[in-house]
């Protein structure tokens, strides 16, 4: 019971506070930037050549201001904003008017979640297994070769690596499509043909993320394992004649995974902000692209919508790590 009173409740209060603070900052930032979405809309209309009477223009400005929820002082807007938020209403997008923000986000989210959940899981699993073995057998030839490869791959700037893959496999040899999340005009259904089409389109983005992310996980895990391998308890188990597979699994990897588990949870939390560069390079219709366009266009409601998901993702991931960590490391106890 002391756990609930002394740890769980304060921790949950902290969780709610962080979310509130994050959302408030998200509410304020677009209003501080010099983008005025209403004036931009008017500019766009005029750019298209429509001449507006001063009276009509005033009416349009008033209507737009009302529709965007930009009426009154910031405080009024703030209260109205929370009211809508609790109803699950994130408002309408300014620039894909009158599509609702909810709809835009839920269209982009499956793409991002599908790509990033799979690649994060594969990257983490492969990186840790290979890195762990390479760390334990660090004197073997294959381990040194892998280490050298990781050393070359890891410092490559992501966008250059992504472009290289695109150039080679989509332009020169044409194994994979240049752009998009699925073929144009393909209708999302649960058919094998559509799934195959999606997998084919996501292959290059996935490979780019797995190779570069995997190199980082590999190197971290290899170092962790090498350090733990030199620890007294590993040496002692070896001198006690404990079988090698037990030492690798229960003594070395088990201890080296502790920081990696934290890393995985934080990585999963960041999924909601998308993978911007991947999505730009491969023209992938995910959350990163959506957020980028929202920022460029000053689309307050959309920025807020995506960021709110992101804030929830990261704070929840950290909360879950905090609460489950004692299961992995018995030295951490909340009383």
């Amino acid at each position: 019971m002391t756990f609930v009173k002394r740890y769980l409740i304060p921790r949950l209060i902290q969780y709610v506070l962080v979310i509130w603070l994050g959302i408030t900052v998200v509410f304020l930032i677009p209003r501080i930037t010099p983008n005025d979405p209403v004036m931009r809309m008017i500019d766009q209309m005029q750019a298209r050549g429509s001449t507006l009477e001063p009276g009509t223009m005033d009416a349009i400005i008033r209507d737009l201001t009302q529709m965007y929820g930009l009426e009154g002082s910031w405080l009024d807007q703030y209260w109205a904003f929370w009211g809508r938020l609790f109803r699950g209403d994130l408002g309408v997008s300014f620039f894909q008017f009158p599509t609702r923000v909810n709809k835009l986000i839920f269209t982009a989210m499956p793409w991002t979640l599908g790509l990033l959940l799979t690649t994060t899981a594969i990257t983490w699993t492969l990186g840790n297994i290979i890195g762990g073995l390479a760390g334990y057998y660090s004197r073997k030839g294959w381990s040194r070769i892998l280490d050298a490869v990781a050393m070359v791959v890891r410092p490559l700037p992501y966008y250059i690596f992504a472009f290289m893959l695109l150039l080679i496999f989509a332009y020169v040899v044409r194994w994979f499509p240049i752009t998009g999340g699925a073929s144009l005009g393909a209708i999302p259904t649960f058919t094998w043909a559509f799934i195959k089409d999606v997998l084919w389109h996501s292959a290059l983005p996935a490979i780019s993320l797995i190779v570069l992310g995997g190199a980082v996980t590999f190197q971290t895990m290899k170092l962790l394992v090498q350090n733990i391998n030199a620890e007294n308890f590993v040496q002692y188990a070896k001198l006690g004649g404990v079988k090698e597979n037990r030492i690798v699994g229960k003594y070395v990897i088990r201890n080296a995974l502790l920081p990696q588990i934290t890393g995985l949870a934080l990585g999963l939390g960041q999924i909601f902000s998308g993978a911007l560069i991947t999505e730009i390079v491969y023209g992938y219709p995910g959350l990163g692209m959506l957020l980028y366009r929202a920022i460029v266009n000053g689309d307050y409601n959309l920025i807020m919508g995506i960021t709110i998901f992101s804030i929830f993702g990261i704070t929840t991931a950290i909360l879950i790590v905090d609460l489950t960590y004692p299961l992995f490391d018995p030295r951490v106890r909340y009383t």
Partner: peptide
């Protein structure tokens, strides 16, 4: 000298079962 994340029972088991 003892594995910090497992109970001593487990350490004993590893030594005995090996």
């Amino acid at each position: 000298a003892l594995n910090p994340v497992i109970k001593l029972k487990e350490t004993y088991r590893d030594f005995i079962e090996s």
